[in-house]
Simulated scan of single mutants.
Amino acid sequence: MVENRPFLTFLTHFVLILGVIVVVFPVYLAFIASTQGPSDFLSGVVPLLPGSHLMENYGQMLTGGMSRAGAPPLWILLGNSLLMAIIIAVGKITISIISAYAIVYFRFPFRLLAFWLIFITLMLPVEVRIVPTFKVVADLGMLNSYAGLTIPLIASATATFLFRQFFLTIPDELMEAARVDGSGPMKFFRDILLPLSRTNIAALFVVLFIYGWIQYLWPLLITNDSRYYTIVMAIKRLAAVADSDPQWNLVMAAMILAMLPPVLVVILMQRLFVKGLVETEK
């Protein structure tokens, strides 16, 4: 039983509110900056209230982009990032859940060796294997393509491990009962395992969507065609231009627009996301 101590209650709420302020205040400043005019920050005074250029700045970035940065309209970049994030998230979940199902429920030679080989790849991030991966993608003619943006990032040892650990918690009696009822391997997978994995899939989708959305190094390496730029790449190009010709209001507008899709995904899937992370009874 938790004791009701007013001081501890005040202290915990104070720390929580302080943490929220620390996290939210930079985002608030970015939004304020995105509503200002191009010269409002040159005075060195940071305004704390929204300006009158909100619609102008956001409209310019969405429809016209920033020509001096070589960036197309942001709606194209947002679409590229959205497509990349969805393909990576769905691809990782699909491959991982099938791999975990095969490792747990099928008996074949070197089954555990296959799992540990997959697990060891956790120690090899994209940056370590980026040169040979780029060589393979280039030889296959996938530079400046959505396939090149997504396929090399689809495999996921983390998701395979998480699905394997979840499948190990499912009682063997459930599989035996399905077998007695005449269910084959795919029917057992489709009708029993997938519904039971719904919260895990939702939690992983949120994490993997954000992982795909914030990719910077890989898209930067394999794309030099502005039609395939992602929103994170565009923000870097905008910031580089802003060093010599400050237009931070447009840069901040792009940053706010780049934040919206991940935030919406988290909000819409919040219940399943939290449930998938904390649920222990299956």
Rank of each mutant, 00 (worst) to 15 (best):
A71Y: 02
L117T: 14
T63L: 15
I93W: 07
L153E: 01
K92I: 00
R111I: 06
L82W: 03
D139I: 07
E127P: 03
P50A: 06
L77W: 06
I86E: 02
I86H: 02
V136F: 09
I93N: 06
N144A: 01
T63Y: 12
T121R: 08
I76R: 13
E56D: 15
M55A: 14
L149H: 03
W116V: 10
P50N: 06
P132V: 12
L74C: 02
A159W: 04
F134K: 01
L74F: 15
I120H: 08
I118H: 09
P152S: 02
G70Y: 00
T150V: 07
R68C: 02
L77C: 03
M84P: 01
L78A: 07
I86S: 02
E56Q: 15
L82Q: 02
S145G: 06
I98E: 10
G148D: 00
T158L: 13
I130L: 13
N144T: 04
L117D: 09
I98A: 12
P109W: 05
M66K: 09
F106V: 07
S52I: 11
A114N: 12
K135E: 14
L77D: 00
I103P: 04
F110W: 09
L78S: 05
F106C: 08
G64A: 11
Y58G: 10
L62W: 07
Y105V: 10
I118W: 05
G64C: 01
I130K: 12
M55P: 01
T150R: 00
A159D: 03
S156Q: 05
L140T: 01
